[in-house]
Simulated assay, not measured.
Amino acid sequence: MNRETPPTAALRPAPGPGQPTAAARHFGILLSATPRGARLARRLAAEELHRWGWPHGSEANRTATLLVAELATNAVRHGRVPGRDFRLRLTLQAGDPELLVEVTDASPGRPLPVPGAIPPPSAEGDGGRGLLLVEALSSRWGATGGDPYTKTVWCEVTLR
């Protein structure tokens, strides 16, 4: 698997919810830009948060995994390029309750989403609500296009 967790991180005990971490926590993985890859992103994020001290079923874990699911689904639906994967990264700095969620996809030429400028979804359609959920549930979010081949949509969520 393309997991990017340092091997020593798995050997340290995870702190309980609300307790400061001894060091920054990082998780990253490349996943196929398919519906299966999006589901796996959500499941892996939930498991990693559980290992970091926010158990399955806790509000923090549910909210963060919902945000991961929305960003990963958008990467698959709108940023998919055949043969290219998407990357999920989770970062939690020591002593900071803000979890940074980053999803990078291969979507050259597509406009970057802008916070506060997401159009309302169609009443008839069943889509178009993902970034509205991200905007509502995260403390802040945004998008960056660091190179002509990828874009990263990120959000921060407070884990309490």
Rank of each mutant, 00 (worst) to 15 (best):
A24L: 09
A24R: 13
A24W: 08
A24V: 11
R25T: 06
H26Y: 15
H26D: 12
H26S: 12
H26K: 11
H26A: 13
F27V: 01
F27G: 03
F27N: 01
G28A: 04
I29H: 10
I29D: 05
L30A: 13
L31S: 06
L31I: 05
S32G: 14
S32C: 10
A33L: 06
A33F: 04
A33P: 08
T34I: 11
T34A: 07
T34S: 15
T34H: 07
P35R: 08
P35S: 09
R36H: 15
R36G: 15
R36I: 10
G37S: 06
G37T: 05
G37R: 05
R39W: 11
L40E: 15
L40G: 00
L40I: 09
A41S: 08
R42A: 15
R42L: 15
R43C: 04
R43L: 13
R43Q: 13
L44Y: 06
L44W: 07
L44C: 07
A45L: 02
A45G: 10
A45P: 04
A45K: 05
A45T: 06
A45S: 11
A45W: 04
E48I: 06
L49V: 08
H50S: 14
H50P: 02
R51D: 12
W52I: 05
G53Y: 05
W54D: 13
P55T: 08
P55G: 10
H56N: 09
H56A: 14
G57Q: 13
S58K: 11
E59N: 12
A60D: 08
A60M: 06
R62I: 13
T63Y: 06
A64Q: 03
L66S: 12
L66A: 14
L66H: 11
L67H: 05
V68L: 03
V68E: 03
A69Y: 11
A69N: 14
E70L: 07
L71Q: 00
L71K: 01
A72E: 01
A72N: 04
A72Y: 01
T73P: 00
T73F: 10
A75I: 01
A75S: 07
V76I: 05
V76H: 04
V76L: 05
V76Y: 00
H78M: 00
H78V: 03
H78R: 02
H78A: 00
G79F: 02
G79T: 02
V81D: 07
P82Y: 12
D85K: 09
F86S: 00
L88E: 00
L88D: 02
